[in-house]
Structures are given as structure tokens and as C-alpha cells.
């Protein structure tokens, strides 16, 4: 409880300091819609809905959260890219699906990175490769060795970047994996617990099982080691030159009025500093909020596109 109070005080202090920076006169014409690129009930949806509610409470604007699914945000950002820039609709998505599709079929997409004005990020997601506690390996080199010795090495994945990481691992090391597709982290965890797969990717779904001692972290899929499991090495450390850094980010249509951009990104910044949002981000992805700001978000997307290009290079 003490920590929460401290965070609260810190948040209030940050808010007090940043408040004057906000363009106080601008407000959306009607309501501000936050389109969430994922379905109801996931971690993006939960964080987005709470963020929208806190923004509404803090600014007095009418902020509506709605889900717009399709291609992990591609459909939602397609809509936003085509809209007139009125400053009334913003999108919340994850960078990876957008970047992967831009690399793989950029010519088919009606937008590129320049089609948006970026508003900020909520946080970075951490991607772990996990296994059952009694799995016959403890780290990625061990798992690769196990795959080479055994005919079957089933690994569950629930999104394209996860499969890419294992594809690069297979290419680099010559090990073969039985890649088992799932609908997402929760189903992947079920397969690990049921013993049908030996390893699986998790963006937080394994926490209760790690706590119960039934699962362990094998490797970190990000560029850096995981904040909650600093002992597990990354793919890069194991000699597999690949990583993914998924960010939850917000953007709107290119050409939106500068005053509106400043007001909205300021509102996001303030809301991210609120104890409610800090708490929900902690709860949803076991990480603190991390706002790269408008410029930092754009830089993250541009660098990310180059990195994803490397993942696909054969």
C-alpha cells in the first residue's frame, strides 16, 4: 500500500509540473474517440479503456474507447490514415503487427509510417519464452541442443513475431522446431501445462504459473533482458541475431492541427502519470508506463521498421 501511495504522490507532482505545458484552450470538436486495434478483454483493450476513462476525468473531454480489430491494428490505422485530420480520433495499437505488415506487404497497405502524427507510448511489452518447470532445459542454448537431439521439439506461438524469432533460431543453429500455432498466450500456456508443447511464448500470461512454480523463463525475446527475470538471457546473447520490442503506442492522422496534437499528447502524458493508469499497466503487463513522447514514438517506429526488416532478411 505504501508503494502505491508513493507512486500516487509522485504522479500528482508530475501532473502539477506538466499541467501548464498543456495547450489548455484546445478541446475536441464533440468527443475524442480512442480506437483500440485489438478485441475486448485483452491487455491492450484493458489499458486503453482505463487510459480513456482517466483522460476523460482529467480533461473533461468526452473520451470514447471502441475496439476496431483487424490485422492487429492494421485495419484500425488504415481507417485513421484515410480520415481527414480533425483531431477527433486517435488510435491505440502495438507496433509489431504494423511493422511486420509494412515489411512484408507494404505495397498493399494504404499507409506508411509517414501517414501518422505520433502521440506517445503507454509502455513496452516484454516477450518471454517459457517452459514447464520440469522441462529438460533451462536456457535457449539448452533448448536448441535438446531440439537437435530429439525428433520432436514442439514450441507454441500466438503471433507472427514469435514465429519469426524461432525461424531465425532454426536458420542460425540448424535445430528443427515443431511450431504449433495458437490463438494467443493463454492457449499457449494451456499447451505447456498440458505437456503438449515443451516451450511457448508469453507476454505475461505465464506470471501466475511462474509464481506457482510450474513454469520457468527460458529466454527474453526483447533486445534487453526481462525486468522481471533478469537471469534469463536474450536470443541475441544465445547467438540468434533477432529480437522484438513491442510497444503500445498512440497515433492519429497526419496533418492534425499542432495545437490539437499538443493537447492530446499532453492529456495522454498526464493520464499516464495518474495512479490508476500506473496501477493498471503494472497489473496488465507487469511493467511501468513508459511514454516516449511524440518524437520518441516516431523514432521508435522508424528504428523498429529497420529491425523487422532484419528479421525477415534470409
Amino acid at each position: 500500500m505504501k508503494r502505491r501511495t508513493l507512486v500516487g504522490i509522485a504522479a500528482c507532482a508530475v501532473m502539477a509540473m506538466t499541467a501548464p505545458l498543456m495547450a489548455a484552450d484546445w478541446k475536441p470538436d464533440g468527443s475524442l474517440t480512442m480506437q483500440i486495434g485489438f478485441g475486448a478483454g485483452g491487455s491492450t483493450d484493458t489499458m486503453g479503456r482505463v487510459l480513456a476513462k482517466v483522460m476523460e476525468d482529467q480533461t473533461g473531454w468526452n473520451v470514447i474507447a471502441e475496439n476496431k480489430t483487424g490485422g492487429g491494428g492494421v485495419a484500425m490505422f488504415t481507417g485513421i490514415a484515410k480520415m481527414p485530420p480533425r483531431g477527433t480520433v486517435i488510435g491505440l495499437g502495438v507496433n509489431m503487427p504494423i511493422l511486420v505488415n509494412l515489411v512484408r506487404r507494404g505495397d498493399e497497405l494504404p499507409f506508411d509510417l509517414e501517414s501518422f502524427d505520433y502521440l506517445g507510448t503507454i509502455s513496452k511489452a516484454e516477450l518471454a519464452l517459457v517452459a514447464a518447470a520440469d522441462a529438460p532445459f533451462d536456457d535457449l542454448p539448452g533448448m536448441i541442443a535438446h531440439a537437435k537431439e530429439n525428433a520432436n521439439m514442439p514450441v507454441a506461438f500466438g503471433a507472427p513475431p514469435q514465429k519469426l524469432l524461432m525461424d531465425v533460431a532454426a536458420r542460425t543453429t540448424g535445430a528443427e522446431f515443431n511450431m504449433v500455432t495458437t490463438e494467443g498466450g493463454a492457449e499457449s500456456m494451456k499447451l505447456v501445462l498440458g505437456g503438449q508443447v515443451l516451450a511457448a511464448f508469453s507476454s505475461g500470461e505465464h506470471f501466475p504459473h511462474a509464481e506457482a512454480g510450474t513454469m520457468k523463463v527460458i529466454a527474453a525475446g526483447n533486445a534487453q533482458r526481462l525486468s522481471y527475470a533478469p537471469d534469463a538471457g536474450t536470443f541475441v546473447e544465445a547467438g540468434v541475431n533477432a529480437y522484438v520490442d513491442p510497444y503500445f503506442y498512440l497515433a492519429t492522422t497526419k496533418g492534425t492541427d499542432a495545437e490539437a496534437l499538443a493537447a492530446i499528447s499532453g492529456a495522454i502524458e498526464n493520464a499516464l502519470a495518474s495512479p490508476e493508469v500506473i496501477e493498471i499497466v503494472n497489473n496488465a503487463i507487469k511493467n511501468d508506463p513508459l511514454n516516449l513522447g511524440p518524437d520518441g514514438t516516431k523514432a521508435m517506429m522508424v528504428d523498429g521498421l529497420a529491425n523487422v526488416g532484419v528479421l525477415f532478411a534470409k
Binding site: 491487455s43 506470471f207 501466475p208 504459473h209 510450474t214 496501477e279
Partner: peptide
């Protein structure tokens, strides 16, 4: 997600 909002994650514990 309602559990998550309240800091609880359903699982074996």
C-alpha cells in the same frame, strides 16, 4: 480483465 484491473491474475494460486 476485471480481475486484472484489480491487480488479481487468475491462475493456479
Amino acid at each position: 480483465s476485471a480481475f486484472m484491473i484489480h491487480g488479481l491474475q487468475p491462475g493456479p494460486l
